[in-house]
């Protein structure tokens, strides 16, 4: 797989950093090199929030990238800020219930999923981010669902074990969503 860079972006509170961390953890458990770098400061206190995750077979140099291979985006300001930066032949995963715009780029793969409305419909309003993760692994081959579930099982704190099944369900909904 070489090296894959991912930017996850949205509002503070959507679980953007969590989403990135799950990807980094899955990479770590599969013995890959990983970095996770969040935006910090005022934006993490309610404004836009983002993080860069790099997953690689070899040592990682820069933990930042101007052109991510994958953008997972959950609000319009972040879409506007990052969509042009996606690397050529890269992938856009977009929460279409919160981003009204559609990309006109022909050189990237585009996937739209109304993750936030789907989450509400399924009575899991806080798990739109995990639904996005499901869509991400359906659209790309960075991890299999089993690998991501293994990572969730290993990393979930014991105080939140009861939420594991719901997270797996959300992942499944995202993975099997058809536009």
């Amino acid at each position: 797989m070489g090296i894959t860079s991912i930017v996850a972006a949205g509002f503070g509170g959507q679980g953007i950093l969590f989403m990135g961390k799950q990807l980094a953890l899955a990479g770590m458990y599969l013995n890959k090199k990983v970095t996770w770098l969040p935006s910090y400061g005022p934006e993490s206190r309610g404004g836009t929030s983002n993080c860069t995750v790099i997953i690689s077979d070899d040592e990682i140099g820069s933990p930042v990238t101007p052109n991510p291979d994958i953008l997972i985006v959950m609000n319009l300001p972040s879409y506007i800020k990052f969509h042009g930066s996606i690397a050529k032949n890269g992938t856009l995963i977009c929460d279409s219930s919160l981003v009204s715009e559609r990309s006109s780029r022909e050189d990237i793969d585009k996937y739209y999923i109304p993750a936030t409305s789907v989450a509400y419909k399924n009575n899991m309003p806080k798990l739109a981010n995990v639904i996005m993760l499901g869509k991400l692994i359906a659209a790309t081959n960075i991890f299999t669902p089993d690998e991501l579930i293994m990572s969730m099982q290993k990393s979930i704190p014991s105080s939140k074990k009861d939420l594991l099944d719901l997270n797996i369900k959300a992942l499944d909904i995202g993975f099997n969503y058809k536009e």
């Binding site: 980094a24 970095t35 996770w36 910090y40």
Partner: peptide, 10 residues
């Protein structure tokens, strides 16, 4: 620096 402080790695 801020990046090393905030960054996660194994």
């Amino acid at each position: 620096d801020g990046a090393l402080g905030q960054m996660m790695e194994p």
